[in-house]
Amino acid sequence: MLEDFLTAARARAPEPSEALMARILADADAIRPRRAIAKRSLRERFGTLFGGWQGIGGLATATAAGLWIGYAGIADPGTLSGGLVEPGAETVELMPGADVFALASAVEG
């Protein structure tokens, strides 16, 4: 006997109304995670600000170099490259004869 009642109840199951479905879908939309923008972490935003990991790498290198120069107290920063550049290449004449033009210009006045 009980099975007949259970069968009848299963056949007469309540169905969600359109209004209920609308409310549920409105809730889902209201709290739906907005992808990308909302999900980006502080670290990601910081990285983007300085040009990604390449930018941060360059910035870190420059910062480390600055700290080293400041800590070492080098009087003449020009000597920093002394060990890397050959002595003969210290002066390069980019405009041969430029001093003559400069002298002529000064004389003509």
Binding site: L25, A28, D29, R32, P33, R34, R35
Partner: peptide, 13 residues
């Protein structure tokens, strides 16, 4: 839906 897919919410609902 957790990644922002609205259609998935509708199917689940």
């Amino acid at each position: 839906y957790g990644r922002g897919d609205a259609a998935a919410a509708r199917a689940l609902a």
